[in-house]
Write a protein that binds this DNA or RNA. Sequence first.
DNA 1: ATGGTGGGCCACCCA
Length: 271
Amino acid sequence: MNIRLATWNINSARLRMPQILRFLQEYDVDVLCLQEIKCQNEQFPLEELAAQGYEHVELNGQKAYHGVATLARMPLRTVERTVFGGIDEARHLNVEMPGVKRGGKPVQIHNFYVPAGGDAPDIKTNPKFAHKLDFLTDMATNFSKQKDRNDPMILVGDLNIAPLENDVWSHKQMLKIVSHTPIEVEHLDKVAQSLSWIDAMRCHVPDEEKLFTWWSYRAKDWQASNRGRRLDHVWVTPSLEGCATHMQVVEPARSWERPSDHAPVIVDLKI
DNA sequence: ATGGTGGGCCACCCA
């Protein structure tokens, strides 16, 4: 069974519906995980998606900020919406695909929006940075205690960390910038180690090559300056190792009218 | 060192 899965920080689902519909159609996506939907569940535009064949939508929304959604052509079932890091915000949604199994178990998809962490990389002066690290610590603990690395799971989303040197435009100039500080990378590494998660994007692009998914709105010409970061990720547990047969960052979407500042990431899975 | 651009919502918060 071949499944095309995508993740996209959409920066307002309601405002960006034309781009969402265009993306689903042009790229023939089966499952789309959205972050920063910025609306309550009741406000999410279900009808337009159903009309285009995406009849299955699971939500964890909230008013104005954050919020994640997972939508698909095939049935989905919400397993859990978990609060990490002690602050009750809509930043996680775990769904399973009852019709998509590996080793007799339905494949689960964790959709994450990790806190951005504010400006100063200092837990003493910046509560947002402390929250980000707490969130990551909680993720690692929760996975270790509650989950089994032998289960087929996919983790996608905006993790707001670019861990590798070539996940940012300038490693040296980014070392003290939130999203690329060593302490954040250490915390993210612990999350990855908790269930031996595999970085499915880097399986397709060598560590020596630049790979970005986000470009700031503040650049005059995002392509010319190309000061990007890889903030969005796709991980799989060991039982799905090698299942991601193809990966692409859909950079053209960053140039569409009224774009999100994130580009979608697509993986093709053979399950 | 600073400000640059967006979205939600109606005074600012957040990215």
